[in-house]
C-alpha cells in the first residue's frame, strides 16, 4: 500500500456541532491532495485531527504508513514527519524570528541545553534562502509582531518546510498574499512534489488548487462529497460541479478514486 496517511471512519463533534462525520481520507506517497470546501465545511478540523491537535471521536482510526497510530499528539505527529502551515499561522508575536521558526522543536545540544547559536544561524540562512525578506533591518532576533502579512506567512511556510517533513499541510496559505507572494507559495507546493514529499493543500481559490494538486477532495458540511483525479476534470468542469453542489447539496458524480 502506497498511502502514507489514512483516516478511517473519523468523526469530530464539538458539543452540538458535528464538524466531521465518518470521514475516510488518504494521502498517497508523493501526492498533492487539494482540499476544497465551503467555510465551515470542516477542512481545518480535519487538518487538526491529522496533526494530533484534536483527538477524533471514538471509532475513528488514523494510520501512518500502514501503521495504526493511537493517541496522536502534535509532538508525535511532528516526530512522524507531519508539518503544518495553520490557517491561523500559529506564531508568537512578541518572540523573535528564531523562536518562531523553532517553536516546539528547539534545537538542543547533547546535554539538552538550547543551541542558541545554531538556531540563530539556521534562521539567518533561511532568511537568505527561503523567506525573501525585503527589509534589511530584519535579523533572527527581530520580533515577529512587526512583520507584514506576507512575511508572517513566509515564516509559517518556511517553518513547515524546514523540518523535512514527509507530509506538509497548508491551510489557506495564500490568504491575504499579493500576487507575487501567491506565486511563490504555489511554487513551494510544487517544490514539495518534486522533493518527493506529500502535501495537503487547502485554498478557496480553485485556480490555485487545480494546477498543483494531483487529486482534489471536496468536503461538504463534514462529509466528503466527492473526489477527482486532476486529469478527470478541467478547472471549468470543477467550478461547474462546485456551483451545483452549493445549490443542490449533492455532487453530481459519485465519490470515486480512480486507481
Amino acid at each position: 500500500m502506497d498511502d502514507i496517511l489514512q483516516l478511517k471512519n473519523v468523526s469530530k463533534t464539538f458539543g452540538e456541532v458535528a464538524a466531521l462525520h465518518k470521514i475516510n481520507f488518504e494521502v498517497g506517497a508523493n501526492e498533492i491532495v487539494g482540499l476544497l470546501g465551503d467555510n465551515g465545511a470542516g477542512k481545518s478540523t480535519l487538518v487538526k485531527i491529522i496533526t494530533g491537535y484534536h483527538p477524533p471521536d471514538p471509532g475513528g482510526e488514523i494510520y501512518w504508513k500502514g501503521r495504526k497510530v493511537d493517541h496522536l499528539s502534535v509532538a508525535k505527529a511532528r516526530d512522524l514527519g507531519i508539518e503544518v502551515v495553520y490557517q491561523e499561522r500559529a506564531l508568537a508575536d512578541q518572540q523573535s524570528l528564531w523562536r518562531n521558526i523553532f517553536m516546539g522543536r528547539e534545537l538542543t545540544n547533547r546535554w539538552g541545553v538550547l543551541d542558541l547559536g545554531g538556531m540563530r544561524n539556521e534562521t539567518q540562512k533561511l532568511m537568505n534562502t527561503m523567506m525573501g525578506f525585503t527589509s534589511a533591518a530584519v535579523t533572527p532576533d527581530s520580533v515577529v509582531k512587526t512583520f507584514s502579512g506576507g512575511e508572517r506567512q513566509g515564516v509559517a511556510i518556511t517553518r513547515a518546510l524546514y523540518f523535512q517533513a514527509e507530509l506538509i499541510i497548508l491551510d489557506e496559505p495564500t490568504m491575504g498574499l499579493s500576487l507575487s507572494e501567491t506565486k511563490k507559495c504555489l511554487d513551494f507546493v510544487e517544490g514539495i512534489k518534486k522533493a518527493g514529499k506529500s502535501a495537503i493543500f487547502i485554498d478557496h481559490n480553485i485556480f490555485h488548487v487545480h494546477p498543483v494538486a494531483d487529486r482534489i477532495v471536496i468536503l461538504d458540511r463534514g462529509t466528503i462529497a466527492g473526489q477527482f483525479k486532476k486529469n478527470q476534470l478541467t478547472v471549468d468542469a470543477l467550478i461547474d460541479r462546485l456551483q451545483r453542489l452549493a445549490h443542490t447539496g449533492t455532487l453530481d458524480i459519485s465519490p470515486q478514486t480512480a486507481a
Binding site: 494530533g52 502534535v74 495553520y86 517553536m103 516546539g104 538542543t108
Partner: peptide
C-alpha cells in the same frame, strides 16, 4: 537555556499557537 524555558515564553505569548506547534 532550556526547552522548558523556551516553552514558558511561547505559552505566555500565545497559548493557542504554542499548543498548535506541539508545546
Amino acid at each position: 537555556r532550556t526547552q522548558f524555558g523556551a516553552h514558558v515564553f511561547l505559552t505566555g505569548d500565545n497559548v493557542d499557537s504554542a499548543r498548535l506547534m506541539g508545546v
